[in-house]
Design a binder for these strands. Structure first.
Length: 289
DNA sequence: CTCCAGGTTCCGG
DNA sequence: CCGGAACATGGA
C-alpha cells in the first residue's frame, strides 16, 4: 500500500481514535483500519507525522480536522490545574468531522452502553447492512438511512441494540422519507440545529451535542454524560451532586469559551484513562496532586 | 450474581 | 420544574 504523509501539524492518531468520539476504527499493524464515509482508510503514526493510504489523503485531512488550529484552541483553554493536566495528557487529540448520519446513528445506539458495546454494535451494523468497500482489506461502510429504513425492529434487535432499535429505525425512516434532511441543516444556528436533532426519537441534549460537536463542527457544543458531569462537579462545584445538568451546561459555555467542546473532550478522556475503575475516586486531589 | 454503562422519555408530585 | 423508574444487553 502506498502511503502519503498528512500535513505537518500536531496530531495524535491514538488519542483521536480512542477518545470516545468514533467507534469503528480497528488496530491493524502499526496503525488503524477504518473508513471515512465510503473511502477505506489506513492511518498510521510515525513519530510526529501521520500517514494514510494515498487515495484517502484528501478526505482524511478533512475528517481528522487537521485544519483546526490547536495553538489557538489551547490558548483559549482556562488555566486551572485540572485543565492543564488534561492538556498535557491529550496534546494532539483532534475533534473529527464525521459524516453526519453515521455520527447521529452511532450515538443513538450509544445510550447507556459501554464503549466496547458501542463498537460492537457499529461493527455488526456495518457488516450486516453496510456495503463491502472495494479494497484489499475487508472494510464496510455504515448502512445509509434508506437501507435501515427497510428493516424491521426485530432485525435491529438482533444486532444487540435493545430498546435503542426502535429509535434508530424511526430516525432512519424520518430521513428516508424526507421528513428530515441532515445535510440541509448545516447552515442553521447551533440552538436551532440542536432543536432539530432533538426531534429524533432517542435524541436528547447529550446526543444532540455529540452530533453538533463531532459531525457539525460546532466546537462550542458540550455533551454532558455521567462522566463529564462528575468531572465538572468535582472540579468546579466542590463535588456537589445536586448541581443540575442545566447548571453544568451554562457553566461550561461561560468557563471554557469558544472551544468548550474541545476542552470538555480533553477533560473527559483524561478522566477516563486516569479513573477507569471507579468514578468515585475522582476527587479534586486526584487531579491536582 | 449484581452492578452499571458517553441517556431519553414518561410519570407523579 | 423535579426526582424516579423503565428501557435491553453484556462485560466487569
Amino acid at each position: 500500500m502506498r502511503l502519503t504523509r498528512l500535513p505537518d501539524v500536531e496530531f495524535n492518531v491514538d488519542l483521536t481514535l480512542n477518545c470516545g468520539q468514533v467507534f469503528h476504527w480497528d488496530r491493524a499493524g502499526k496503525g488503524y483500519l477504518g473508513a471515512v464515509g465510503r473511502q477505506p482508510v489506513y492511518v498510521e503514526q510515525r513519530g510526529r507525522r501521520a500517514y494514510v493510504n494515498a487515495e484517502a489523503a484528501k478526505p482524511a485531512k478533512s475528517y481528522f480536522g487537521l485544519d483546526h488550529s490547536l495553538e489557538e484552541i489551547y490558548l483559549s483553554f482556562p488555566r486551572d490545574r485540572a485543565m492543564i493536566k488534561a492538556l498535557e495528557a491529550c496534546r494532539g487529540m483532534r475533534i473529527i468531522r464525521q459524516p453526519i448520519w453515521e455520527c447521529l446513528a452511532t450515538f443513538i445506539t450509544s445510550a447507556m452502553k459501554q464503549v466496547a458495546h458501542i463498537r460492537q454494535i457499529s461493527h455488526t451494523l456495518r457488516r450486516r447492512y453496510g456495503e463491502r468497500l472495494e479494497w484489499e482489506y475487508e472494510i464496510f461502510s455504515y448502512p445509509d438511512p434508506h437501507r435501515l429504513a427497510r428493516l424491521k425492529e426485530e432485525d435491529l434487535r438482533e444486532c444487540a441494540l435493545g430498546f435503542r432499535a426502535g429509535n434508530l429505525l424511526k430516525t432512519a425512516r424520518m430521513i428516508a422519507e424526507g421528513k428530515a434532511d441532515l445535510e440541509s441543516w448545516r447552515n442553521l444556528e447551533t440552538p436551532a440545529l440542536r432543536e432539530k436533532l432533538c426531534e429524533f426519537p432517542g435524541v436528547g441534549e447529550k446526543i444532540a451535542n455529540c452530533v453538533l460537536l463531532f459531525a457539525y463542527e460546532r466546537l462550542e457544543a458540550v455533551p454532558i454524560d455521567v462522566w463529564i458531569a462528575q468531572v465538572l462537579r468535582v472540579l468546579y462545584f466542590k463535588g456537589d451532586e445536586t448541581v443540575r445538568l442545566s447548571d453544568l451546561t451554562a457553566f461550561s459555555a461561560k468557563y471554557f469559551g469558544e472551544y468548550s467542546g474541545y476542552a470538555q473532550q480533553y477533560l473527559f478522556h483524561h478522566a477516563r484513562v486516569t479513573f477507569r475503575r471507579s468514578k468515585k475516586l475522582v476527587t479534586l486531589a486526584d487531579w491536582t496532586e
